[in-house]
Write a protein that binds this DNA or RNA. Structure first.
Lengths: 139, 139
DNA sequence: CCGGATCCGTTTCGATACTG
DNA sequence: CAGTATCGAAACGGATCCGG
């Protein structure tokens, strides 16, 4: 019976809704790891992310799963391990991440390879199609 | 001399950089207010946002200004008021917000008018050009 | 009035240690 | 390996106060 706070009663504005799911420092970083960096396991995120704490990671994975952005399965190869994958809803965030990369590369100092950024800008649709293809292939 | 925390030493990944500036519950909401809702003043944000506290708002405006996403000027009309505007860097976030709207409209229940979302999808470039035009006109 | 700053109780985060 | 427990630090949220 916690008291309702401002964030609980958000408007139906799509931006507001999206930020309710993704408006924090880590969630989109996990999505990025899944989408671009072939990271799949809890351990991958823990080491590969930029130093997220284990409890925060567990919480964010739970939230992303609750939002149906991420799915958790047993690793068919290794029975004691779990594998996280993006759902269709999750992979649909690709355009958002791509625009974020383009924006950052333009206005901040990043380590993004200029060639990749150029591809994102010049062949956005193709780039996203490739991401989706790799995802469908189960990469 | 505060101890460095994980978030302080982020990688140069463009997503990571962007989230350092925008990875919270409110910043992008303010950008949205400026970009789509003709909100300009502290009071506008305070009442129109979804219930942000005044101290948080002040902090976010300061951060957005420090990041050169927003600019603060005196209101030429009303001497006791200030006007916030997006910078060029700020208006360049339009594609990110548009993709966020499209994603939310597809996967969540939002109050976005379907006609507008359809325009965003079918004539993305034109829609963003319009946003930019209104911004340049000083709207 | 407008644009905040301050105070303070509550919530969340972050680092580390620990467990099934 | 994949988390949970704990605890101090930081951020948030609401109310109120203040300067111009």
């Amino acid at each position: 019976m916690t008291a309702p706070t401002a964030r609980d009663q958000r408007s139906g504005c799509p931006i507001s809704i999206a930020l309710e799911l993704l408006g924090d420092a880590w969630s989109l970083l996990i999505v990025r790891d899944l989408m671009f960096k072939e990271r799949r396991t809890y351990k991958d995120f823990l080491e590969g992310g930029e130093g997220i704490a284990s409890n925060i990671l567990a919480d964010r994975l739970r939230r992303l799963e609750a939002a149906a952005i991420v799915r958790k399965q047993r690793d068919p190869a290794d029975a004691r391990s779990f594998v996280y994958r993006l759902t269709a809803k999750g992979i649909d965030l690709a355009p958002v991440l791509v625009e974020l990369v383009i924006w950052s590369a333009r206005h901040e100092v990043t380590d993004a390879p200029p060639s990749v950024v150029k591809t994102m800008r010049n062949d956005r649709t193709g780039f996203i199609a490739d991401v989706r293809k790799r995802w469908q292939a189960g990469a």
